[in-house]
């Protein structure tokens, strides 16, 4: 069970991909208000977006992206049913990926 939700919609000749990931996105700069201890960094560093198995976009993030990150991008072409894959890797080495098909 993946915690990445992907919606990809074809309109005209443009496909819009909208994606929500489940992640705490801790910067490593925040302190616990009760214990005053630094909360360890835990954030997504890289996201790779593929269309029909080919990488179209690579993103690198700091902990400055909000908790449960939202990402949207657009590309030309694409056909209903084409698979979109989104995969992330975080600073602890954890990774997740999900695939969705383009809808019309």
């Amino acid at each position: 069970m993946s915690d990445i939700k992907i919606r990809a919609k074809l309109e005209g000749d443009e496909t819009t991909v909208k994606c929500l990931m489940s992640h705490p996105m801790e910067t490593g700069l925040r302190k616990d208000s009760k214990t005053n201890e630094v909360i360890p960094a835990h954030f997504i560093r890289e996201v790779v977006c593929k269309v029909k198995g080919a990488v179209v976009m690579k993103t690198s993030w700091s902990g400055g992206v909000s908790k449960n990150p939202y990402l949207s991008f657009k590309f030309k072409g694409g056909a209903v049913g084409d698979p979109i894959e989104i995969a992330w890797t975080d600073n602890t080495g954890e990774s997740q990926s999900a695939t969705a098909e383009i809808s019309g």
Binding site: T27, L29, V51, M57, S62, G63, G64, L71, K74, K76
Partner: peptide, 28 residues
Amino acid sequence: ASKNQTPLIASFEFVDPSVIPFVSTRIK
């Protein structure tokens, strides 16, 4: 984000020319 402790938040690299120069996200 110019006044964040680590100002660089995200970078989006368009590997394929089909990608339109558009990105949307949420930042701190």
